[in-house]
Amino acid sequence: MIIDVIGDIHGYADKLIGLLKQLGYVHNGQYFVPPSGHRALFIGDLIDRGSQQIATLETVFAMLDADVADAVMGNHEYNALAFATLDPSDTLDLSDTYSANDINSNSSQQYLRSHNEIHIRQHEAFLAEVPFGSDSHQYWLQRLYELPLWLETEYACFVHACWDVDSMAILKPLLTDDNCLTLQGLIATSKEDSVPFDALERVLKGVETPLPNGIVMIDKEGTKRTRVRVRWWLDELNKRTIHEVARAPASALAQIPIDVLAENIDFALKTHKPVFVGHYWLTGTPEPLSLQVACTDYSAAVDSGYMTCYQLDTEQPLPLKASNFVQHLHD
């Protein structure tokens, strides 16, 4: 079996369809049928940014419903759920079980993900097609709940940002048996400075290390950051400098002394299987991140980026090979 691991789509249905056709998938009037011996796997971040949100969701979920594909949740799907869910913490007992109606009848107007200017801007492409509170909005939110936070098979591991089994163990009691979020799980993981919040951040956004005191970075969304994302797939993270491990532009790292070590990176990759992720906005010619980790996000959400797939042979998952990547060169 060949698993076509497809990177972040972000509402660019035309790029996705171009890649599927390039891979030999054929639309039968209802969904894209894979070539014999193939199955698709979407690595998360289906939504936001692009102008074809519903077309993307319809394409992906038609394949999921036909059981010719799998998918995991990305941080943008998680954010969409939190953005649409009122915070019940002031009026409901969080130890109880309750429904979405209980939450949304709450008099509080504070949402689990705040409706500030940055969050609205990040989500505006989705809400332009799926108006907030509409029947369509409610339908797609329920479908997003169907996406597991991670998938593990006998031959590989699939997660949006980081395969951290310690964080997954923390999250597991908040999930369904097949690793999908519950409403209680969404609420628990949205509380900043909590153990569930930090665990969810690891799985869907990656591993971070503190910046030296007094140093702040401004990310592409305009948010001030006192921590920087790191390349967790490298060995001996705590023995390397921030410059060696950081996932940040050189211009942003210029303010950090070259010899400052990364600190407090409590992470180890605890699997011998290959791990597939998205999330990281890579550019250039695709190649594995390490002997064990491959990313299929090559910035398809910008004009210069390409929808990217890794074709995983389940009979011989390792070694990872650059030749197994396929890109749809839309231009």
Rank of each mutant, 00 (worst) to 15 (best):
I2D: 04
D4E: 12
D4K: 11
G7W: 01
G7E: 01
H10C: 04
Y12A: 06
K15P: 00
K15C: 02
K15H: 04
L16V: 03
G18K: 04
L20N: 04
V26P: 00
H27L: 07
Q30Y: 10
V33L: 13
P34Q: 09
P35Q: 12
S36W: 00
S36Q: 15
G37F: 11
H38V: 03
F42K: 07
I43Q: 07
D45A: 08
D48T: 07
S51C: 02
Q52I: 07
A55H: 02
E58C: 06
V60W: 03
V60P: 02
F61S: 10
D65I: 01
V68D: 03
A69D: 03
A71W: 04
H76Y: 10
F83N: 09
A84D: 13
T85N: 11
T85E: 06
L86Q: 14
T91G: 10
S95I: 01
D96K: 15
N104D: 10
N106P: 00
H115A: 11
I118K: 11
R121P: 00
A128R: 15
A128I: 00
S134M: 07
D135P: 06
Q138S: 14
W140E: 05
Q142I: 00
L144R: 05
Y145G: 02
E152W: 01
F158Q: 09
V159K: 03
W163P: 00
D164G: 13
V165N: 06
V165S: 14
S167T: 04
I170N: 10
N179L: 04
A188I: 00
S194P: 05
P196N: 05
D198H: 14
R202T: 03
G206N: 05
V207A: 10
N213G: 08
V216W: 06
I218G: 05
D219H: 11
E221R: 13
R225Q: 14
R227V: 09
V230Q: 06
W233P: 02
L234V: 01
D235H: 13
E236D: 15
L237E: 02
A252L: 14
L253D: 09
A254F: 03
Q255Y: 00
Q255W: 00
P257G: 10
V260E: 14
V260W: 11
L261D: 02
L261K: 15
A262L: 11
N264K: 15
H272C: 03
K273V: 02
P274M: 03
P274H: 04
V275A: 10
E287G: 06
A294R: 02
C295M: 02
S299L: 07
A300S: 15
A301K: 04
G305K: 01
T308R: 04
C309M: 09
L312T: 01
L312R: 03
P319W: 11
N324A: 15
N324S: 14
F325C: 04
V326C: 10
H328K: 06
